[in-house]
Design a binder for these strands. Structure first.
Lengths: 243, 243
DNA sequence: GCAAAAGTGTTGGAAATACACCCATGT
DNA sequence: ACATGGGTGTATTTCCAACACTTTTGC
């Protein structure tokens, strides 16, 4: 039998009091912003703000303001740094180890965002903001390498279950581009014929009746992702046990 | 082009200062603790601590201490309320709407936990701690109904991809119990023969050579989950596109 | 012997894989 | 003409869903 004491019934004053004594924990959001360029998966990074991490790379993040929701904070960070606000953004998970921030106790909520690099050229390059190719050794500040890894795994899984990869491509894209994207995200090679067959049978692509141009070979058709068709598809009825 | 100003390069003092002005945001953990009893999925709940929510049900949660990791805080809450500490626990996601807590700005990290009700009988019942049957109308405090729903959906998905359902059962269980568990979690009926076939072909069950007893019909065999076999299985090689 | 659930196999269809050839374009 | 990748079809295999009867126990 445990002997710890239980919290007593509290009113608002008590909560505020406990917050004041216990509460100096900062909350931040960190955005892992993926882009796709030259058939490679890239991440937006800047040089760290903190002197302790001088020279190291950092994700885009900021403390959450007291009057904004977490999602709002993530969108704000994105907007401040890139000027973009019509982007895919989703919460991934929190990181709250006591020692993860050298200055203070800061719990961070990681967000994952996907944007089309060509469509949204960077407009500011403060702190050497740039697209960084994903690689094993990136010399990152804080626990940002961990956050990046978790978000990459999240993306690999998510992209197989939801049609969010399209956010990384131009509105009109060839099947080759789509396949390159999946291969880059998953880090595997896929059979071209089966890949096509799969996407066509899913019936979420819409033929634009346009073709690629400026390619040194037979141009491919360009497609758009059809949200309507996707939304009206009904989900699975049965269990898919798989572990 | 955005005209917002960018944060300047900061040192530790600046971070601390910003934290003090910006930072009075509380962080809590809330645990959604699932159990399985009488073929029903249950959740541990208490009567809310807060006067504003008098009479309403609440998940088990507490503010995170400044010197403990998030996971530690979740384990602590679990231990304080139930006396158990050898349980499955996993972070699900954060909830941080500005208005979610009436007393102050409190961001909460939701954790999901699975425990075997028979093995760990409740030892304290402060605040009417009890196992609550899942249902549509539960009159819950805060945004706890939302958190519960998100965690339930998380569980439905997770239990199909990872062998965590076993945490809800006794160490030795019949296939019927296992199937009842899956049916309760997923809210669907499954074919008994295909269910067995599936689990046997996954090769993660170990025959204990024991039988059920005290059942008013032919007793079933009892099995254990074999972690070793599970761990040594290799993952999928290929892409499983499915949306 | 009757009720109730355990235990077991087969079959048809759908989806995944592996694989090879012709076609359209730029150079 | 040739190099490059686009576009297509088929045979095989694997997985899933549907389905019915016999067996073992308690009462």
């Amino acid at each position: 039998m445990s002997t710890e004491k239980l919290p007593k019934r509290k009113d608002i004053k008590a909560v505020l009091k406990q917050l004041e004594s216990d509460g100096l924990i900062g909350i931040s959001v960190d955005c892992v912003i993926f882009g796709f360029d030259e058939n490679e998966l890239k991440v937006l990074m800047i040089k760290s703000d903190l002197k302790q991490f001088e020279g190291k790379w950092s994700l885009l993040g900021d403390l959450v303001h007291r009057d904004e929701d977490l999602d709002q904070a993530a969108y704000r960070v994105l907007k401040e740094r890139t000027g973009m606000d019509d982007v895919y953004l989703e919460q991934v998970r929190s990181f709250g180890d006591v020692i993860r921030h050298p200055a203070a106790r800061v719990v961070t909520i990681a967000y994952c965002s996907l944007i089309n690099i060509q469509q949204h050229r960077l407009q500011k390059t403060d702190n050497e903001l740039h697209w960084h190719k994903l690689g094993p050794d990136m010399d990152m500040a804080f626990d940002h390498q961990l956050i990046l890894n978790v978000c990459h795994e999240w993306l690999q899984k998510r992209v197989q279950e939801h049609p969010l990869g399209f956010s990384l491509l131009p509105q009109k894209f060839s099947l080759r581009e789509l396949q390159n994207l999946y291969e880059a995200i998953l880090g595997i090679k896929l059979d071209r014929r089966n890949f096509r067959k799969k996407f066509f049978s899913m019936d979420v692509l819409e033929d634009t009746n346009e073709l690629e141009y400026d390619v040194p070979h037979r141009p491919g058709k360009l497609y758009k992702f059809n949200y309507i068709k996707y939304k009206t598809k009904e989900g699975r009825k049965f269990m898919r046990l798989d572990f």
